[in-house]
Simulated scan of single mutants.
Amino acid sequence: MERAKPSSIKRATALRYMGASGWQPDDATTALLDRAEEKILAAATPRAAVRRLPRAVFPPPELDCGTDLTRHLQGCDAVLLMAATLGSQVDSLLRRLELTDIAMAAAADALSSVLLEQICDELEAEWRAKFAAEHLYLTGRYAPGYGDCPLELNDELCLAVDTVRGCGLAITPQHLLAPRKSTTAILGIADHPVTGTLAGCTTCHLRETCSFRKQGTTCFAK
Rank of each mutant, 00 (worst) to 15 (best):
D148P: 03
P150E: 00
I171H: 09
D148F: 05
E156F: 15
C158E: 05
A160D: 08
Y146L: 03
A170N: 12
L153P: 05
G140K: 05
L138V: 02
D155Q: 14
H135N: 15
T139P: 03
E156W: 15
V164Y: 10
R141I: 05
E134W: 03
V161R: 11
L138G: 02
P173Y: 15
P173C: 14
C158K: 08
E156H: 15
D155R: 15
G145T: 00
T139G: 06
L138I: 06
R141Q: 08
R165W: 01
E134G: 01
L153G: 03
A170C: 11
C167I: 03
P173S: 13
D162Y: 05
R141V: 08
E152V: 13
V164H: 12
C149Q: 06
G145Y: 05
L176P: 01
P144W: 01
L153I: 03
T172Y: 13
H135K: 13
R141G: 09
P150A: 00
T163M: 11
P150Q: 00
G147D: 08
P150V: 01
L136P: 02
L169Y: 09
T172N: 08
L153V: 02
T163I: 01
Q174G: 10
G166F: 06
Q174F: 15
A160E: 14
G145W: 02
C167P: 00
T163E: 00
T172I: 08
L169T: 09
Y146A: 10
G147R: 07
G140S: 14
L176K: 12
L157S: 04
T163F: 09
L159W: 12
I171F: 03
H135L: 01
G166K: 06
T172H: 11
